[in-house]
Design a protein around this nucleic acid. Structure first.
Lengths: 218, 218
DNA sequence: AAAACGTTTGACCGGGCGGTCAGGACCACG
DNA sequence: CGTGGTCCTGACCGCCCGGTCAAACGTTTT
């Protein structure tokens, strides 16, 4: 009954933040959520099966249901931390900073997330593709509020002539679309580029920096 | 912008091109494929059920299986025509045309497809998200060949100084990402924009024209 | 040692899944 | 009218799904 030490390793989604009593519980909860992330992100909620998640986690199905009450609960746990982490890079956009560097910084952070957490990106994409049945309210509320706020900042920069005139909302959509594309459509990107043109993300970063620089430079 | 009808009466995927013997067969095949498109695009292959497709098509399940031998067959039929139609706008990019107008034309055509055929876009997105298990070979073959060809054209324009220097492959990715985003992430876009800012696609077209003009103008 | 608690499992359940089948309804054409 | 082919359906099948349960196993505490 010890272990009150907080975990903050490489876990961006606080997967183990729910009252982690024993070491076994932490290990197994993490294994389950990691397996579930892999399966849900590839097959969507309805396409995923508990047997498959259990197998991937190295547990029996009843044992899996000892740690989570239902398939729904696993999915919800994954989505819960997701939106938060998804928005952090946008929150970090500093109204007091140098406009173009702030926006380019956001682009770079978002692209890094596509490279380092593609499964999370695909889980999110699946949820939105299906009409956001589980996080719809969060989109209307928290997400819209944050975007409106940052859009106002960008509009301010625009008005002051510090960046070129641009629709702030669609600018943000552009950043989302262009960065998440490299995670969500990874197989297509790699198929088109072929094996001889190096890591797609290197070319992507150069291209996106160019693109947004030309778009935003007054 | 091009203005096609949003109803399924304008059949862009030759859904009924398979030996349409009788009038009833044509009507029912079309109804099935239209229903299947709705269900597959929202839930993915494994998440879709024959009962649901049959209900949406207004047929009984056995009757549905009178027209198609299996769930797989329906899905394959949908995907078969999809890639073709998906690539047509890129094929139409004319090497002899005015570079920036050619590329902007491609952007407009692709955005129009997102607006008029969002279900097709989401069906494609689902397939890619799952790792392209059924159209992987087509991506490596036909798609890569076409993109390589058009990328060479764009690189030529770049070399001649008729457009600004840009990575042709990532330019094409940008067009795909930015246009398909408005179909695939429609709910998110509408949630963020709210109800008072008009049709997302109007703002999208203005924004994308601006974006690519600034990116490509030498 | 043994109680007490946390963990794991095999066997099982009702329901929904993709798909089958025999036969009935419908329909064009003699 | 009848007959043959097309179209449609209720009943059914075996399988896999999410989820339950009692019992056994492991580990820590007393």
């Amino acid at each position: 009954m010890v272990n009150e030490t907080r975990e903050f390793s490489s876990d961006p989604f606080l997967m183990t933040s729910h009252l982690p009593r024993t070491r076994i519980q932490r290990r197994n909860r993490r294994a389950i959520l990691d397996a579930a992330l892999a399966v849900f992100s590839q097959h969507g909620f309805r396409g995923a099966t508990l047997d498959r998640i259990a197998a991937e986690a190295g547990l029996s199905k009843p044992n899996l249901l000892y740690y989570f009450p239902s398939k729904e609960a696993i999915h919800e746990t994954l989505l819960a931390g997701l939106l938060e982490t998804w928005l952090d890079p946008l929150r970090a956009l500093d109204p007091a900073g140098e406009p173009i560097e702030e926006i380019l910084g956001y682009v770079r952070r978002k692209l890094a997330m596509s490279r380092d957490f593609p499964r999370e990106s695909r889980l999110f994409a699946n949820e939105i593709l299906q009409g956001a049945p589980r996080i719809g309210p969060t989109l209307d509320g928290e997400l819209k509020k944050l975007v409106d706020e940052k859009a106002a900042v960008i509009a301010g920069w625009s008005g002051e002539g510090r960046i070129a005139d641009v629709d702030p909302w669609h600018l943000i959509f552009s950043i989302w679309a262009l960065t998440q594309h490299y995670a969500d459509f990874d197989v297509q990107v790699r198929a088109v580029l072929g094996p001889d043109r190096g890591d797609p993300f290197d070319g992507a970063e150069r291209h996106l920096v160019t693109l947004f620089t030309r778009l935003l430079t007054p």
